[in-house]
């Protein structure tokens, strides 16, 4: 097991290197000259040239690439073209708010989603199922930014219970995590339900029932565990997406997170920030996949790692 994890972590390095190369190439293919954009709407060519030198964009592409790779290996991602602050601190400032928002959204979304899914599967085609799936469908189809705006209008503007923007206290987390988690909860509910229904039709469930186990124990012990495998996969994927920072929810709640940083970076062609962000997102996905794989083994001991 430990060996497997170490092997996977080592495998990370070439993957990230390949991602780094691709990212560098793709980003430099984007139309628009970052020096021109950074210099602003009133700049003359002389100013643009000064800015180009200042940002190191006048160097040959190969040199920029070498610098980027060497820097990345040393953990130095350079400075943002826009704010001139180190990329690492730009990202560090925003990582934790996004991380905690993701965690809280996932926690409530998984609990609610799985509960609704299990209830719907057990009372299949009866009113709890209909109610649960109606909720789930609306959760998927209601866009997160609209939900965020409605929540803000009700709980912040009309009732004045919760603050609108910022990320300073636990109160600030409530509305954005609901807005962000709603779609995840809905997806989790539908996934759990279908996976559960499949499992409930399996032979070993019939056997469990046949040997006289109470229904509660059949569902909680035999079915749930086996139904979890696909659900965990889904959970990992969603977690990875949310960690990238939800652009719309972060915009609505002015969340100081990675999604807004990404948008700002794309708009200004802020190469160093973009490169570092894409690398970070790749790393997050790889790590989450690893965690998911390890979880499989814990859920289903028949899975072997090699």
């Amino acid at each position: 097991m430990l060996q497997y994890v170490i092997k996977r972590l080592l495998g990370l390095i070439p993957t990230l290197l390949i991602v780094a190369v691709l990212v560098f190439l793709f980003i430099h293919l984007l139309p628009g000259d970052p020096a021109r954009l950074a210099a602003g709407p009133e700049a003359t060519p002389e100013t643009v040239d000064l800015v180009r030198q200042d940002l190191g964009l006048d160097r040959p592409m190969s040199e920029q690439f070498a610098r980027f790779i060497v820097g990345t290996v040393h953990g130095d991602f350079g400075k943002s073209l826009r704010t001139k602050r180190p990329v690492s601190s730009e990202i560090a400032d925003r990582f934790m708010p996004t991380f905690w928002l993701t965690v809280w959204s996932m926690v409530w979304a998984v609990i609610f989603g799985m509960a609704i899914g299990v209830v719907s599967a057990v009372w299949r085609n009866r009113w709890p199922d209909h109610l649960g799936m109606t909720l789930a469908v609306s959760g998927i189809s209601f866009p997160a930014f609209a939900l965020g705006m409605v929540l803000m209008q009700i709980f912040a503007v009309k009732l004045n219970w919760l603050p609108t923007v910022g990320a300073d206290s636990w109160k600030h987390y409530i509305l954005p995590s609901i807005a962000l988690g709603a779609a995840v909860a809905a997806i989790m509910a539908r996934f759990t339900r279908s996976s559960f229904i499949d499992i409930l039709g399996e032979d070993f469930i019939r056997t469990a029932r046949a040997k006289g186990l109470p229904e509660k124990s059949v569902i909680a012990k035999h079915a749930l565990r086996n139904a979890l495998t696909p659900v965990v996969t889904m959970m990992g994927l969603q977690f990875g997406f949310l960690l990238g920072g939800s652009i719309v929810v972060e915009k609505v709640f002015n969340w100081p997170g990675l999604g807004r940083l990404l948008i700002d970076a794309v708009d200004m062609r802020d190469y160093p920030v973009l490169q570092a962000l894409v690398l970070l997102f790749s790393l997050e996905f790889i790590l989450i996949n690893l965690v998911v794989d390890v979880l499989y083994g814990w859920i289903n001991p028949t899975i072997r790692y090699r």
């Binding site: 209008q153 503007v157 603050p163 609108t164 923007v165 915009k251 002015n254």
Partner: peptide, 18 residues
């Protein structure tokens, strides 16, 4: 000085007095 990107959110902040 608070940069708030979303138009509606800024309007909400004015209404709540934030």
């Amino acid at each position: 000085w608070r940069p708030v990107v979303d138009n509606n959110t800024r309007a909400a902040m004015m209404q709540t007095g934030e």
